[in-house]
Amino acid sequence: MGEAIKIERLTKHYGPRRVVDNVSLTIPSGCVYGFLGRNGAGKSTLIKMLMGMVQPDAGRASLLGEDICELRPATRARIAYLSEGHPLYRWMTVAEAVRFTRPFYAVWHARFLVSILEHFRIAPKAKIGRLSNGQRAQVSLALASDPELLVLDDPTLGLDTVVRRDFLESLIQLIQRSGRTILFSSHILGDVERVADRLGVMVDGVLRVDCPADRFRDSLRRVVLEFVGAIPRFPDSPGLVGQRQVGSRLELIVVDFGDQHRELAESLGATHIEIVEMNLEDAFIAYTRGETPPLPSLEWETIA
């Protein structure tokens, strides 16, 4: 199986801020890769660099075996890119958008286009400016012309639950045939869980996780330590993602909790150790939130 996407130490600064920091990643052909991260984590910038919309400051990447800086039109024709918000020319009708797009492609999959438009019941005469967000997403998908590699930047942003699910299911059904590759970013965990074989989590521009979706969920644990009296700080140790104090307890987020962590907890004087499994959403929040200061104790004041 070949590599659809290969990224090596890709870096981008906006002013003094490093928005993408030394990201390296390989996505094999046929993989559905979900890119997770909070707003501003660097997902969109990374995708825009891959698509040649943003120039990297350092590093290199290739799509379908070709360097992104020298991507030939013929290779670009095999890649579809649905950018955030699905921008299309609003004055065009769907048929005009098709007429505009079609001449750029040597091979045009008319049946693919018609099947998507029919599936979503979009009339060719409909004006794009009058379509909903969801319908624009569907038209964008229809214009993709059956690509080998489909890159979607937050495709379900702003769509309601029903349209979102329908869009994702159609996406998988229509595109993921015979080794087609999908890279999509999202901050909706359910979408990623439903669709992705593999996921990456970006935090502050750094790719912190790149593993199968199940592995990510299974390896992360919330460990609750109970103390009597003062609560100590858990020492830095391999696998410790974060810690926070909640009342008389210390909550840890740990990857691959093992004997070493247990011994450390006992040496701190923990009276009780509870290990809690996490679903993908909890795992994601725990992973991306970072350390948070303890909540202040709330004191009620009587208002005269």
Binding site: K48, M51, G52, M53, P73, A74, R76, A77, I79, Y81, S83, E84, G85, P87, L88, Y89, R90, T101, F104, Y105
Partner: peptide, 14 residues
Amino acid sequence: NRHTWQFLLHRPLP
């Protein structure tokens, strides 16, 4: 303003 550069520039043409 309409964010259509990304659609236009992804057309397979130099």
